[in-house]
Design a protein around this nucleic acid. Sequence first.
DNA 1: GGAAATAGGATAAAAGAGGTCTTAAATACT
DNA 2: AGTATTTAAGACCTCTTTTATCCTATTTCC
Lengths: 149, 149
Amino acid sequence: MFRLSKGAEYAIRGILHLSMQPEGKVSFVEEIGEAQDVPKAYLAKIFQSLTKKGFLKSTRGQGGGFTLIKPPAEITVNEVIEAMEGPIYLNDCLVSKDACERETFCPVHELWQKAQTSFMDVIINCTFEELAKAGKVKREKCESKSGAA
Amino acid sequence: MFRLSKGAEYAIRGILHLSMQPEGKVSFVEEIGEAQDVPKAYLAKIFQSLTKKGFLKSTRGQGGGFTLIKPPAEITVNEVIEAMEGPIYLNDCLVSKDACERETFCPVHELWQKAQTSFMDVIINCTFEELAKAGKVKREKCESKSGAA
DNA sequence: GGAAATAGGATAAAAGAGGTCTTAAATACT
DNA sequence: AGTATTTAAGACCTCTTTTATCCTATTTCC
């Protein structure tokens, strides 16, 4: 269906949330879920998997929760998506060089290559630092507008 | 899962096949399916739907089959995909302006907008005339290579 | 009427989205 | 030290939607 899965969407929101916290702050699932409109049971599962994959550090018990391992500037949107969904291929024939026997004569292959590249460029070059900054600006703009009214 | 469905993939191959035929030639499903590596029963259903959506003309009975209604130069890859899968949105929040209540403050929205635009640019600007031409060139190159060997 | 085609419904398997419940670990309080 | 509380870990479950395919009915030409 050509759409980002909810799992990846929620992972992005979760990491974005952590990226916007003061450094070193530990956040817990319930808090994040509420702030980001994500069902907490689902988010817990997603965070588990992000922890295993090396994005988050988790601590249990009271005062526990999750923090980012790497600084937001070093995490790209692309990485998070691939962590959740596996490698991105817009079309099967791009999976590997030899995956498609039609490759030698099928002109659709090149088209997908091109489409995929131009799409991936965008998400590879987007870090969570940028995203967090953009979010902050956007939020301030929104607040000043409603404050003025 | 972020991937083109088989349905859309097969639709593209089918229309590409027709685009490479002499104008006015009627092709039937079995022939196309074999040439394009598509299960014929599945292709038949896909062609049904492409007929309803105005891409193909069908004639039943002996000597029947499918032909393109519009010239290949006037069909874009984008149109065919949307015919099969519905409108393309890489992320739910792009579905409509008001679909996402988070839109006012969520910075991910813009990112997806950008990614989608640069991806769509490629498939909107690719017609089946181009694709057919590219296919012809590719095939000839391949044949001359294997012929020389 | 019979063969060649498309039309269209039915269906099976897989992925996606989310929830529940128990266990484990860390802290806080007695 | 011991118990209660808070938080994540992990296993398992279920419902829905999508994807991919098959099978039978209907139409049309000869």
